[in-house]
Design a binder for these strands. Structure first.
Length: 120
DNA sequence: CCGATGACATTTG
DNA sequence: TCAAATGCCATCG
């Protein structure tokens, strides 16, 4: 086969592996019981204007990923469970297991569980 | 190359 | 508070 990098970690982007790697790094640092928005992750990754691309990276994640992608929600604090995304209900169920109350509509209190990264 | 779409965010009415 | 419009950047037809 060819000496490619670990493509199993996810598809590559024209933005560069840097973007994907940073996003996965940030998401992997989210502690249990905490929430972070796409814009939050994008900002911490070093790309303040690319929240959509963050979703693109998470979209390419495999089912067996160890990353807590379910802890990443929109800034309004809702999960698109309204028939928009197949994994939405999975995310909602997972968040409930994490200890975060989520309504059937996918709405939740983001600020009540907002993850605050420490910049040591 | 152009237009439409997307696991979003922000502003305006 | 909710709905619509605009911005952002990459992918798809």
């Amino acid at each position: 086969m060819n000496p490619g990098p670990d493509e199993a970690s996810g598809p590559e982007f024209d933005l560069g592996p840097e973007f994907r790697d940073q996003v996965l790094e940030i998401v992997g640092k989210i502690p249990k019981g905490r929430l972070a928005s796409y814009g939050q992750v994008a900002l911490l990754a070093g790309f303040p204007r690319r929240p959509r691309q963050v979703g693109m990276v998470l979209r390419g994640l495999p089912e067996n990923t160890r990353l807590p992608w379910h802890r990443v929600v929109n800034n309004q604090g809702y999960v698109p469970s309204k028939g928009r995304w197949w994994g939405a209900m999975v995310q909602i169920e997972r968040l409930r297991v994490e200890g975060i109350p989520v309504a059937n509509d996918g709405t939740l209190d983001l600020e009540a569980h907002r993850w605050k990264p420490r910049m040591d």
